[in-house]
Design a protein around this nucleic acid. Sequence first.
RNA 1: GGGCUCGUGGUGUAGUGGUUAACACGCCGGCCUGUCAAGCCGGAGAUCGCGGGUUCGAGACCCGUCGGGCCCGCCA
Length: 603
Amino acid sequence: MLKTHTCGELRPEHAAQHVKLAGWVNRVRAQGGVVFIDLRDRWGITQATVDVQSAPEAHAAAEQIGREYVVQIEGIVRPRPEGMVNPNLPTGGIEVEVQRVRVLNAAKTPPFEVSAESKVDEALRLKYRYLDLRRQRMQRNLILRGMVTKAIRDYLYERGFIEIETPILFKTTPEGARDYLVPSRVHPGKFYALPQSPQQLKQLLMVAGYERYFQIARCFRDEDQRGDRQPEFTQLDMEMSFVEREDVLTLIEGLMIKLVEVAAPLTGCQLVTPTFPRLTLQEAMLKYGCDKPDLRYGLEIVDITDLAAQTGFKVFVENAAAGNPIRAIRIPGCGNYSRKQLDDLTELAKGAGGKGLAYIALESGESGQVKSPIGKFFTVEQMTALIERMEAQQGDLILISSDTHPVVCAVLDAVRREFGARLGLADPKKIAFCWIIDFPLFDWNADEQRWDPSHHLFTSPMTEDIPFLDSDPSKARGQQYDLACNGYEVAGGSIRIHDRALQEKVFGLIGLDVEDAKARFGHMLEAFEYGTPPHGGIAPGIDRLVMLLAGEPNIREVIAFPKSQQAADLMAGAPSEADAHQLTELHIRLAEEISHDGNNGSA
RNA sequence: GGGCUCGUGGUGUAGUGGUUAACACGCCGGCCUGUCAAGCCGGAGAUCGCGGGUUCGAGACCCGUCGGGCCCGCCA
């Protein structure tokens, strides 16, 4: 080994030991006759001190060293002199008195500072990702990620789970997200698909009798990116036999609590909800306007349809008469907002699909007045009743949305998120989980005149709702559950169908005729005839979970080599053109307009 | 497919349509034996992403384009 210790481990008790350290030069401070080198590796930073008197050769070498050089130093550990201890470094009690310096590899000046946590353009970080990954933030995040996956494995192995790998080259399923396709050389004109998730395979593993399966599985979906969505991402995919919903929820709650405990020493994150609240989808929509509510703060939605319908405000009266809701949120302490600020909120509402956003501002102070463009349509009693319903006080702002149910939800969800952030209520250190349950099994697809599965097509209906499949599928609830955290969906799962007849009925409702169903899922239907245990599972998204545990704003910060919003790898330059002979071998010809004019020529 | 936004020395920023594009960090050179965001002195470094246009004059305004980000659609 080129090193006897890491750069994070030497302490005063190592004094007088002869050591070798190797790593990257974090900073050099040349002080004339003495040069200080901060030597960095994954474990920490140790100060190496090179004195011109005691080690003239090493001193001369040290003066030539630049940051990010890879060097080995050899010397004696000694406690730092009185008053020279650096309390900011775990190794700050000692330094290595250098006898020899060896440059293992010189380094060009990096395009951004590795040793400082300064802001850097993200495109540049991605282009030089290997340098970005040297920085403290990314090292912490990837170390955390490794700890999380290890904790997951420990937790599940302790409970009798077995880790099984499933194929990356699998079969395309036109349902759901767009597939990434891989052309087959051996089968001209045919394609594999990369899995959107190992859904079918894990169910088949249940048929095969493994009972408790998990996999840290890479999944691929060719859809447009968001801060919480990458074209390839990682799920903890798991499935269990002979379980009911409660078993899955309990297991996952225990796992999530453990993960927060594992992350806490590194990131300072804190669980706010030791028991995870359970909300039906409908409750979540009514209270938070959202199927993945952020429970780190209140700002709950209040229905005021009955009150608003009594007023003289035409929009409210007409909307209520049409069966649409009128709902409001009380924002504490924003009653003195300016006209401009209030107008901006209207824009926010429009951005969410609303036509506008009514407000009632309760100015603060002794002479505080009620300020509202719609105030004149309210009697004093009506206004008083509304303020009481909202539990509003002087200085508060009431924001009101009236539209169809989905629009009201979207608008007030946007309002909630905005003020959660603006009022500092969305503390990134806090972790607030909740379960969303009782999803409808289907959503009506008006364009295609058929039912779409709201989760996926293997989700089992609630037993008591099975008759609805014949009478009114909209009323059938699925045995589905989502785990939400801080406004993100972090897991989704269900108890599955394990009966061929029921599965075929569901295929029929979603417009798959018998031939289609056989062509795409014949292997599943057939398997169900060979003794299939009742089973269910869930798939937490590891990128999102680690992002939340790390308090990061997007999942790129917890992925070593993420893709840009255009699904490109800015470091390697993927995707790239393929050689003509590769294409020929794969039986692929490019369409005229794109052949051999691929990349742009600009800087 | 659509909306918004950003692009200025190596990095991060500033820059009412009007001199020689400013500042900090970094980099290079010098001084310095106790620094640790070292300090002090000096220096180099930008045709303002790219291409058009408006204008007497464009880093700034307009159009296009490339790249990054946020969002809608999409994401069983």
